[in-house]
Design a protein around this nucleic acid. Structure first.
Lengths: 357, 357
DNA sequence: AGGCCAGCGGAAAACCTTTTCCGAAAATCA
DNA sequence: TGATTTTCGGAAAAGGTTTTCCGCTGGCCT
């Protein structure tokens, strides 16, 4: 009766691939029952030295590794976390993914990844599909509507958002405090003496853009005028919108992200516009190359891997308390580098140290 | 149609943990046997209209989705591919991952990812672990020894390498033809009139570095001298090695990668060394930012997503023929931008600006 | 020294789906 | 109309592991 499995193996073994050893093979090899093998490997119950030794030897000899599908079937859990990102080409998301992956690896979890190609329509399906194979999903900067997100949260066992807060619903989330980041940039520019700043807008529907807008509204005032320039989130967008920004005669350009800023910087270079002598420029995110370009970019720094790590922590917590919706805010830090300076026309009509508030 | 999901939610939303519906629940709901449900969903055998309709209705009503673990257990296959990368922070690998993911997604495969943190020692374990949960593994630029790699290939059902060829063994691989890339850069520099080029070396043990060395050896000759500078693969390494490169009094600096080149470029900028007026500079890979810096970087371009896509194709083929070891070589293309020019001392014998540290 | 308890290990059920085998019903042909 | 083929659907096994339940053995206490 035991021979069935063995014969099956021998039979298929004729080809190239030796079929994987099962727990039954190990049990037979060690002269114990499958239950004992399981106990040795999982440590669920103590096993005396003799059998344990034989089991371990047999496992090593056969190169046995438990079948995850069978384990998953029984445990009802997969030891995997899904990560949905809009675009893996974007180092920002790659970093967040790395943060999640490293934390997960540490907890013996696998990471499943899906790239939605920036298409909001596929986010739902990707998350749903991943949730079948994982214990939960981390959703990076989801572009989907609030309503869709709420609905998704009900369908996915454990959903954690990154850089997307949803008021009202109880979706755990970790997000950069874009509002504070924008505020600190505004403060910096105003201190330098800038009074008119062109802002290169990100995608209008993005939550992070809306958060930035809140920061801008708070910072704007009689001594700081913000001129909005439709732009986008890529360096190409920044390159394209640079001319429009210059046309506003603003003394500083504040970009949606470092990527956008670098695109604008390239355009300024083409136009022979000197940064920061003729115009100041700021980014957001502090991607690794922002300190390599010249002039080195003034920006706001946020540890993206940390963002991912915290998302993982939220993921783990969520499993425990079930229905809570904790929100972790990460405050970014202003990094002043060489791309910002006092405006060239400081000598003119405006007070050079008009820093109030 | 959308309402079905909504109703499912309403139903499950009441408690804390709604147990997922099984095929048996669906069968009962539809008044058929589980076998029929399976047949409707997989299409393995025709089912007449009446039961089919009822099954589909029941599936929608219950929000049923088959348990992948059970399917995997039975089929012996996971519909997943593992990708092991040295560092997700490196956009190069992120792009390759994206290529694999997109291709896999297209074939209804999931992607599992592991980051080894550039540590060769963990590559083996990561690949082995991933292979338990996936049907095979794509190994990106593995740093492990040849011997380890061969051993790993025996343990992992379907192993595909990216940017790592192993003579002798039959591991399918897709790789950039670094040799040809380096040759085209050398050719370009020689044509401009450069006779002495400093090469910022990558990691000595890296296969891609050894391939580059072959290209350098082939290109070197009486009219082109190559001076080797130990460096590394990061922008920080490039920044650090830039001074040594200048000290060689070479008229051109050829960097291991764009990253390294950008680091060197930043250092040149700090030193007030003008590129390409005083020294030419080249990269490798054509990362997205190389066209944004000033001067725009002359480099060699390779479609990294395509690399990933081809790795996927190899992965699929490998499943079919079993023991073949096809190798796909991707020839990169020289992109001449603004960071290379004829050497300044074309007229005289020695550089007029003898920059020594 | 005998009885009781603890500890160890085996048998079997359960997890959920797919697929094979088989019976029944319907359709087709003679 | 009766026999044969085709079609359709159900019962059950298989896939590998974990875990519960239970029996057995050995040690310890009285």
């Amino acid at each position: 009766m035991w021979c069935n499995a063995a014969m099956g193996r021998a039979q298929t073994g004729t080809g190239a691939r030796p079929p994987r050893a099962t727990i039954i093979d190990v049990a037979r090899e060690a002269g114990v029952s499958p239950a004992t093998v399981s106990r040795v490997l999982t440590g669920s119950k103590p096993v005396s030295a003799g059998p344990e030794q034989r089991v371990r030897a047999a496992v090593a000899r056969l190169g046995y590794r438990p079948n995850p599908a069978a384990q998953g079937l029984l445990r009802g859990t997969t030891s995997a976390v899904g990560v949905v990102v809009p675009d893996l080409s974007n180092p920002y998301f790659a970093e967040v993914l790395k943060g999640v992956t490293n934390a997960a690896q540490h907890a013996d979890f696998r990471t499943l990844v899906a790239d939605t190609g920036e298409k909001a329509a596929t986010e739902r399906d990707a998350a749903l599909e991943l949730s079948r194979w994982a214990d939960g999903v981390v959703l990076c900067s989801p572009r989907m509507s609030q309503w869709e997100l709420t609905e998704l949260a009900a369908a996915v066992p454990r959903l954690v958002c990154v850089n997307r807060l949803s008021r009202g619903t109880s979706i755990p989330a970790v997000a950069v405090d874009f509002e504070a980041g924008v505020a600190s940039i505004c403060h910096h520019l105003r201190e330098l003496g800038h009074r008119r700043v062109a802002y290169l807008r990100g995608p209008a529907r993005a939550w992070s853009e809306r958060a930035r807008q809140r920061g801008l509204r708070a910072a704007a005032g009689p001594d700081l005028e913000i001129v909005q320039i439709p732009c986008g989130s890529s360096s190409v967008d920044g390159h394209r919108a640079a001319d429009a920004a210059l046309a506003t005669r603003a003394t500083a350009v504040m970009a949606f992200s470092d990527y956008v800023a670098l695109g604008a910087l390239a355009r300024f270079d083409e136009l022979g516009v000197s940064v920061p002598d003729e115009v100041s420029l700021t980014g957001f995110d502090d991607i690794s190359l922002s300190r390599l370009v010249s002039p080195r970019l003034t920006t706001v720094t946020v540890n993206k891997q940390d963002l991912g790590r915290r998302a993982w922590e939220l993921f783990v917590e969520t499993g425990a308390d079930g229905e809570d919706g904790p929100v972790v805010m990460v405050t970014p830090e202003l990094v002043v580098r060489a791309s910002t300076a006092a405006p060239a026309d400081m000598a003119g009509s405006l007070p050079k140290t008009a820093v109030d508030r």
